[in-house]
């Protein structure tokens, strides 16, 4: 029988996959999509809890998270376009401009 526990386990696994992708890859697009994956895992758990307690606040919170993720997407992609125009690379290790002056051209 379907249980809320299944949804929790799926959300935990998706969140872990997101963390693994965020830390171990250096392509900024894939890092960004890993962040979105973690947000979606949290949304899934919120909606599952909302169904379990028959309380709509969880679904409204998930809608708020989706709206904030949309705002985040626009900022991220504008930044990616700028960084790619400056560096011609998608490597996250390349963007250490705040660290020291050694990459300053």
């Amino acid at each position: 029988m379907l249980n809320i526990e299944h949804f929790f386990i799926l959300g935990i696994l998706l969140f872990s996959i997101g963390i693994v992708g965020m830390v171990s890859r250096r392509n900024i697009f894939i890092m960004y999509m890993s962040i979105e994956l973690m947000l979606n895992a949290v949304n899934l758990i919120l909606v599952a809890l909302s169904h379990h307690y028959a309380d709509l606040n969880g679904q409204v919170m998930a809608i708020m998270i989706i709206a904030i993720a949309a705002a985040e997407a626009s900022i991220f992609l504008a930044l990616f376009v700028m960084l790619f125009k400056n560096a011609r690379s998608l490597d996250a290790n390349f963007f250490e401009l705040l660290k020291q002056e050694k990459h300053n051209d």
């Binding site: 799926l10 696994l13 998706l14 996959i17 997101g18 693994v20 992708g21 894939i30 890993s34 994956l37």
Partner: peptide
């Protein structure tokens, strides 16, 4: 979801 997320990373 799990398979396509793994492929994605």
């Amino acid at each position: 979801a799990l398979v396509s997320a793994s492929v994605m990373i």
